[in-house]
Design a protein around this nucleic acid. Structure first.
Length: 227
DNA sequence: ATAGGGATTCTC
DNA sequence: AGAATCCCTATT
């Protein structure tokens, strides 16, 4: 399997996988828990004045609507969370701890709020630019974007991209990975675990809504061992 | 372990 | 209005 799938496993857009064509909106129009899985192995592309950077998504987390006590949408629609209540296929970028940006992808339909947090990518394009932005030396490239705020630094993503439409090949979008990469990621398998940093969310905190590529060196942190 | 930092939401 | 909170990272 080389592309995103819908709930029944059927491809969402026809072969061949194209690493430069943005995913169409219908791929995003599914529950965040399913989109979070579909995004693993996808190519996240950023293009700006400084050049092109890109990476393979290796870790995600699903967030739901007002009923999800761990989701920003728990307070209902506000100025900040408006993108989560809007059309799928847009970015939701917020600032946390007054310091860091985090990138989410809006899921679901107009009737339901939801988003997927991109927690880590494997850098594949524009490595030198990413190192410069991160103040990193060569030799630890797999850790350049291993974390939701680190990947925003590496790709120069901030709130200027909040609400950005991901379905056009402009500034920030998501596409299929090349077939070799897609196969490598698919072969590794998927691990799940509780979401990070949401201990306040009661029984929602223990839901296994964190998804990762098994054993990948760019994961933000280890997954708890599965029973 | 904890400092850093600011927008957002909560509580009065 | 002021207070509390926060889907994190880098450094000790």
């Amino acid at each position: 399997m080389t592309g995103p799938t819908l709930g029944d496993g059927s491809p969402t857009h026809g072969p061949p996988a194209d690493p430069s064509t943005p995913w169409p909106r219908r791929v995003y129009e599914q529950p965040s828990t399913e989109l979070a899985r579909a995004l693993l192995g996808a190519r996240l592309v950023r293009h700006d004045g400084a050049g092109r950077t890109a990476g393979i998504v290796v870790e995600t987390e699903a967030y739901g609507g007002p009923d999800d006590r761990a989701s920003h949408a728990r307070a209902g629609r506000t100025r900040r969370t408006a993108p989560m209540f809007g059309a799928a296929g847009h970015a939701y970028v917020y600032l946390i701890y007054g310091v860091h940006s985090c990138l989410n992808v809006v899921s679901d339909g107009p009737d339901r709020a939801g988003a997927v947090l991109i927690r880590a990518i494997e850098p594949v394009d524009g490595l030198a630019l990413m190192r410069t932005r991160r103040g990193a030396a060569p030799g630890a490239d797999m850790r350049l974007a291993a974390g939701p705020a680190r990947l925003c630094q590496a790709l120069a993503v901030d709130r200027a991209l909040d609400g950005h439409d991901l379905t056009a090949a402009d500034r920030l979008w998501i596409a299929d990975a090349d077939p070799v990469t897609a196969a490598r990621i698919a072969d590794a398998g998927i691990v799940t675990g509780p979401r990070v940093g949401v201990a306040y969310a009661g029984d929602w905190a223990s839901r296994p809504w964190r998804f990762g590529v098994r054993g990948h060196p760019s994961l933000s942190r280890p997954f708890p061992v599965e029973p």
